[in-house]
Design a protein around this nucleic acid. Structure first.
Length: 175
DNA sequence: CGTCTTTGACCGGCGC
DNA sequence: GCGCCGGTCAAAGACG
């Protein structure tokens, strides 16, 4: 259903974030939590945040180290067993958005929906549709503020975002 | 016709 | 040991 076509490469704009701005006018970060014990401030691998890191930057969240502790929302520190299969990087975002389907450039396939006890809203489970990439993401609405959406990324992409690929493959061609 | 969402069932972990 | 709860699977349906 999510006919998310990658941004047409013909735009050749230099700022992907600008595209995002047009894409999600009602996009506002409230909290972002880094739930990874192994990843310190430097642990913010560009691989993992291939495209979302753009969003973080534009939300003017202090990139200064230890800023992750800035989050007021106490997410249960799920420092559980981390599969050595690249999974081990957990990042949770809380965004203000009407739509819970936020296209971050990756292709996600929904594989489950569950009602959780803590919240009256269902929780959706997505998996990266790229072969060999078993990154998961779970999306749910804030129990207290339905206008907020909590997105939790689980794992690291072993491939670039389709958008990035696009930009890589089309360095300059428009006439 | 192919792809993706939906939905209930199943499974494993944890707490009591 | 049992029950609860969260996460995943897989068949069926819907949609393009």
């Amino acid at each position: 259903m999510d006919t998310h076509h990658p941004q047409n490469p013909s735009s050749t704009d230099t700022h992907f974030s600008e595209n995002f701005d047009n894409y999600l006018p009602e996009f506002e970060f409230s909290d972002f939590l880094l739930l990874d014990h192994d990843a310190s401030e430097e642990g913010f691998s560009p691989e993992n945040m291939a495209s979302t890191d753009n969003v973080i930057d534009r939300s003017s969240i202090e990139p200064s180290g230890a800023s992750s502790a800035n989050s007021t929302t106490r997410y249960r520190s799920e420092v559980k067993k981390s599969k050595a299969d690249g999974a081990g990087c957990r990042v949770a975002f809380r965004t203000k958005s009407e739509l819970e389907i936020m296209d971050d450039g990756f292709k996600w396939r929904k594989y489950g929906k569950k009602m959780v006890k803590n919240s009256p809203n269902p929780r959706n489970y997505y998996k990266c549709a790229s072969g060999g990439c078993n990154v998961k993401k779970r999306v749910e609405r804030d129990s207290e503020d339905p206008s907020y959406v909590i997105t939790t990324y689980d794992g690291v992409h072993n491939h670039e975002s389709p958008c990035v690929v696009y930009y890589n493959q089309t360095p300059l061609m428009e006439s």
